[in-house]
Deep mutational scan, measured.
Amino acid sequence: VTLFVALYDYEARTEDDLSFHKGEKFQILNSSEGDWWEARSLTTGETGYIPSNYVAPV
Rank of each mutant, 00 (worst) to 15 (best):
I50T: 01
W37H: 03
I50G: 00
V58P: 04
I28R: 04
Y54A: 13
W37S: 02
F20I: 06
G45Y: 07
D16P: 04
L42H: 05
T43E: 13
L3F: 11
L3P: 06
F20G: 00
N53S: 14
D9C: 08
S41V: 05
S52R: 13
N53R: 12
T44F: 03
D35F: 14
G23D: 06
D17S: 15
V55A: 04
P51L: 07
V58M: 12
E11N: 10
Q27I: 15
G48Y: 02
S31D: 14
F20L: 05
Q27F: 14
E11Q: 12
E38Q: 13
D17Y: 14
S31A: 15
F4Y: 15
L29T: 07
L7G: 02
L18I: 11
V58Q: 07
L18F: 08
N53E: 10
F20P: 00
S52T: 06
T2Y: 10
V55K: 00
L7Q: 05
S32T: 13
R13V: 14
L42P: 02
F20C: 02
Y8C: 12
Q27T: 10
N53D: 11
F4L: 06
F26N: 00
D17E: 15
I50Y: 00
A56H: 09
D9R: 04
E33P: 11
F20N: 00
Y8T: 06
R13K: 13
S32C: 11
E46I: 11
D16N: 15
V55C: 04
R13S: 11
I28P: 03
T2G: 12
D17T: 15
D17F: 15
A39S: 03
Y8A: 10
D35W: 10
F26E: 00
E11R: 09
T14C: 14
S52L: 05
A56Q: 11
H21N: 10
T14Q: 10
R40T: 13
A39C: 06
A12Y: 03
G45D: 06
S31G: 10
S31T: 13
R40Q: 10
R13T: 14
S31N: 13
K22C: 08
Y8K: 08
S19K: 04
L3G: 04
T14E: 09
V55P: 01
E33I: 11
L42A: 05
T43W: 13
W37Q: 03
S41H: 07
E46D: 10
G45N: 09
N53L: 09
W36M: 13
F4A: 10
V1N: 15
E46Y: 10
D9Y: 04
A39E: 00
I28G: 01
S31E: 09
S32M: 13
V58K: 04
V5H: 05
T44R: 04
R40G: 02
I28M: 04
I28K: 04
L7S: 03
E46W: 08
I28S: 02
D35L: 13
F4H: 07
L29W: 05
A12Q: 06
E11D: 11
F4V: 13
N30G: 09
Y54K: 07
F4P: 00
E24C: 06
N30A: 08
A56N: 06
L42Q: 07
Y49H: 07
Y54H: 09
P57D: 05
A39L: 01
G34N: 13
L3Q: 09
K25H: 13
H21F: 13
E33Y: 13
D16G: 15
E24W: 08
V58Y: 12
P51S: 05
Y8E: 08
K22A: 12
H21D: 06
H21M: 12
S19R: 04
F26G: 00
S19G: 07
V55S: 01
N53K: 12
T43R: 13
S32D: 11
T47F: 07
V5R: 04
N53H: 12
N30D: 12
T43A: 11
L29S: 05
S41C: 08
H21T: 14
W37L: 08
V5Q: 08
F20R: 00
V1Y: 12
H21L: 10
V1Q: 14
T2K: 11
K25N: 07
L7C: 08
P51Y: 07
Q27A: 10
W36F: 12
D35C: 12
D35Y: 14
W36H: 08
E33D: 15
G45A: 05
L18N: 01
V58W: 13
E38Y: 15
N30R: 08
V1F: 12
L3V: 14
I50H: 00
S19Q: 04
T2L: 14
A12K: 08
T47G: 03
I28T: 02
E24Y: 04
L7E: 04
E15R: 11
L18M: 14
Y54L: 12
L18V: 05
P57R: 07
A6K: 00
V5L: 05
Y8F: 11
S52E: 04
D9S: 08
Y10Q: 02
D9K: 04
G45C: 10
S52K: 14
V5M: 09
T14F: 15
T14R: 15
Y10G: 02
E11T: 12
T14M: 10
H21E: 09
Y8V: 07
I28D: 00
G45M: 08
S19M: 03
E15F: 11
D16M: 14
T44E: 01
T14P: 03
G48L: 02
S32W: 09
S52G: 07
V55M: 09
G34R: 12
A12G: 12
K25E: 09
V58L: 12
E24D: 15
L18G: 00
A39T: 02
S32V: 10
N30C: 08
K25Y: 15
R13A: 12
G34Q: 14
Y10P: 00
F26K: 00
W37T: 03
S41A: 07
E38S: 09
T47M: 09
R13P: 08
D17K: 14
T43C: 12
G34H: 12
S41T: 04
L18R: 02
E46V: 10
L7I: 10
R40A: 05
P57N: 05
E46R: 15
E15V: 12
W37V: 06
Y8W: 14
E24T: 08
V1T: 14
P57L: 08
Q27V: 15
S32K: 10
A56R: 10
